[in-house]
């Protein structure tokens, strides 16, 4: 009976994370359309509900009611499994993400590795979707995506090595706690090149513009999910936006002190703002990065494929390797204020 209760409790916690996440995904799509609209001197969706606020709901209903067409030449089983394989890891990764001190579903010691493992599994959904569709556009898209994700995962892995060196732990909560003590204790300054590498790799891993070659509308229609319709397509869409939000939250956690109050350490201001829960700070920081992603999409043209590969292999990996040495020196030298007591 206790075991059953424990399982129910865990399921409840999972729902407590997933339902807000799915809502956030729905309204991220709305925010994206609105923001890009304004950036391009348009209005964006404004017809459904008050000023367009019901647009994502209408989209969801539309996608739910659409028929899922399975192409006649497709490998049926794999065609159906692919979206599930894509969305499962992007949801599973949230298990180790802390939202406040101690507020986390699974407080594991190898959280960072787990995140890396989960983000790397997602590529199977993409590859299988492309292969099972039996279409050349989908296949090209999935090959591009696989190459891109593998290339940028190496740079991302090295960036996370730097983060765990600086934080002295692979537990996400402990990494955030290591940054406590005010805005100048956060890791974004000693890890500045790593932050850039991590952020750009994150954008590339989520197949977002300017690295959206796997979907490249102008060349290969919609890439790996060109044959998907209705809810199957919606799963790909959902997973992509969940990954975007995940990368934004992780950047806030690793480099910008997660749930920590940015006014910490400033006399007066700290006590005034002490009542604000940490989750609010985390969401504000993550929201900024989410905005940055949308802003990037509205600003930059798509990379050429060889340029994407060159950036990943020839620039990011050497930069992270060099900065790992610099970081080692900083930690060994006990550079204040970040690594003083660790020395």
């Amino acid at each position: 009976m206790d075991a059953l209760l424990a399982v129910l409790l865990i399921i409840g916690k999972i729902l407590l994370i997933l339902i807000p996440l799915i809502l956030a995904v729905a309204y991220t799509t709305f925010a994206e359309r609105k923001l890009i609209g304004y950036m391009q001197m348009r209005i964006g969706p404004n017809r459904v509900g008050i000023r367009g606020w019901l647009q994502p709901i209408a989209d969801v209903i539309k996608l739910l009611l659409k028929e899922i067409v399975i192409p006649s030449g497709a490998s049926k089983g794999l065609f159906v499994i692919a979206p599930i394989l894509f969305i499962a890891p992007s949801f599973a990764a949230w298990a180790v993400v802390p939202f406040d001190a101690g507020v986390v579903l699974a407080d594991v010691n190898v959280g960072l590795l787990y995140l890396l493992a989960m983000t790397s599994i997602g590529v199977y959904g993409v590859i299988i979707a492309g292969w099972a569709s039996n279409s050349k556009y989908a296949f090209l898209g999935s090959l591009r995506s696989a190459a891109q994700i593998i290339s940028y995962e190496i740079a991302m892995g090295f960036a996370l090595v730097a983060v765990l060196m600086a934080g002295g732990s692979m537990n996400l909560g402990e990494i955030v706690e290591a940054q406590s003590g005010g805005i100048w204790h956060w890791f974004f300054l000693p890890l500045l090149p790593i932050l850039v590498v991590y952020w750009v790799s994150g954008v590339a891993e989520t197949n977002r513009a300017p690295f959206d070659l796997p979907e490249g509308e102008s060349e290969i229609v919609a890439g790996f999910h060109v044959e998907y319709a209705g809810m199957a397509f919606a799963l790909f869409f959902l997973a992509e936006y969940a990954n975007m939000i995940l990368i934004s939250v992780l950047t806030a956690l690793f480099f910008f002190g997660g749930w920590l109050n940015p006014l910490q350490g400033i006399p007066g201001l700290e006590t005034i703002t002490a009542w604000i829960p940490g989750t609010i700070w985390l969401l504000l920081k993550a929201g900024f990065f989410l905005f940055l992603m949308i802003w990037l999409r509205a600003t930059f043209p798509r990379y050429r494929y060889d340029q994407v590969m060159r950036l990943g292999w020839k620039i990011f990996i050497p930069v992270t390797l060099v900065w790992l040495f610099v970081l080692t020196l900083m930690i060994k030298g006990g550079l204040p204020p970040w690594f003083g007591e660790a020395g």
Partner: peptide, 26 residues
Amino acid sequence: AEFLAITLVLVYVGAVMVLFLFVVMM
């Protein structure tokens, strides 16, 4: 052996087998 388990997923499932699949598909 949680470290080994996650490394197995990360290295073999996440990287080696993806390349394998890549080759086999082509």
